[in-house]
Design a protein around this nucleic acid. Structure first.
Lengths: 234, 234
DNA sequence: ACCTGAACACCGTTCAAGT
DNA sequence: ACCTGAACACCGTTCAAGT
């Protein structure tokens, strides 16, 4: 009764790509542009309609609802990720490049952080990345379900590092970043934990981006080492 | 001009906890209940007001806006996480227990997956977990910024594993889960990658929860091994 | 000190109607 | 086949007004 069937754009046949009218591609790239410019809350059917100089409700001809629009936009994000062929550069380099690429792409499309928790990535571009990742870990020497587990571990790490990073960026939204205000904030939040407070490196707030980069690399190396360990222990 | 100052509930003094009127605690637990029952989109000021048998706009006396409400609710999630004292059980066990606890708590409050990417965790309960985590990795032998890096790596792994898991759960929203329909979906999505398709373990869709558990454990062990490796290499 | 209702500027989606 | 506008049932937030 209260339960809804699972639905997804990828389960429906799209409208015939007829000559007149707008194309789905047009709509999707306008959606991505709007999301990049105004964020997830900035996207509304009315605004998107206006951007395409059409009525808001015209969009419902191409798409069942707003969620489908987001699914389509989300897959565009996956399209931007680059995975070098593992057969050419080896699994570990291939994994490292993918990880950095995923992070950069998400930082360019901060709204994607809100989508990862809302809908599974089932689009063709996500599938392409998944396929490459499988080959990557197969080449590494994993077998059976562990191939998937290794892939999940890699994407988990990247998502988990990048999503909170985006939370910080959008909260401090950009251009008027004030390191001293940030230090005050942290001092206030951690006031009851003097030990923690004493050991926080306050310089990191001068330019948080460089520390984050170091942190990401530290975690990535750890994770890859950990995966490699699985191979020798088997 | 377009830039907003960073704001947070944790930067303001709360209203005096006077005797009459609703207390902030009351409001926060009603918020969490509503979020658990109806999800992030199900929470509206009007519904929350009604639940407290008050006008929707009364809430603005206690809270500046809806985001502050979410910050308060989010910290309640951190309150439910359990971290054994690392001095008693050792850093590795302490980390593993925290990781499992974080995951379970998030699965109980699926709306938290949407918040991780939207606002930093600065509440007192989040700080308590952060403090314990610092001590955990200090005990392990990390020094300086690496203490923080190790902590970030741990939480990144848990968030990154759990957030997409929640996306799946909410997309297939519960009670009418049909394994066969799921297999069809996956077959359709992966149709263009026969190699991938051939090696996907279709049994996993009978009860996805057990596979996820295995996957989480696999990743967790890898990650902890990887961190341990950092210690011996230094 | 606390709460209210009216009002404003928005939403997503449905649907009958137009071409 | 494609697009429209009106309409419905919602939103978050402000603000003057009440007690």
């Amino acid at each position: 009764m209260t339960s809804k069937q699972f639905t997804s754009v990828w389960l429906r046949e799209p409208r015939k790509a007829a000559s007149p009218g707008r194309s789905r591609d047009e709509i999707v790239s306008a959606t991505v542009e709007l999301l990049d410019a105004e964020g997830l809350n900035g996207l509304s059917m009315r605004k998107l309609g206006a951007k395409l100089s059409a009525g808001a409700t015209s969009l419902y001809w191409y798409v069942a609802n707003k969620d489908e629009l987001l699914e389509l936009a989300y897959d565009q994000v996956w399209a931007e990720m680059s995975v070098p062929d593992p057969d050419e550069v080896g699994w570990r380099d291939s994994a490292a490049v993918l990880a950095h690429s995923m992070r950069q792409v998400m930082l360019r499309h901060p709204w994607s952080a809100d989508i990862v928790g809302r809908m599974p990535a089932l689009g063709p571009h996500a599938m392409h990345v998944a396929d490459r990742m499988r080959r990557m870990f197969k080449l590494a020497g994993f077998r059976g379900t562990e191939i998937d587990f290794a892939g999940s571990t890699l994407t988990a790490f990247v998502f988990g590092m990048t999503i909170p990073e985006i939370a910080w960026d959008t909260a401090t939204s950009g251009d008027d970043y004030d390191p001293e205000a940030m230090r005050d904030l942290v001092r206030k939040a951690a006031a009851r934990y003097p030990e923690m407070l004493a050991s926080i490196d306050m310089d990191r707030y001068d330019d948080p981006r460089v520390v984050r980069e170091l942190c990401f690399d530290f975690g990535l190396v750890s994770m890859l080492d950990g995966l490699e360990r699985r191979l020798t222990t088997a």
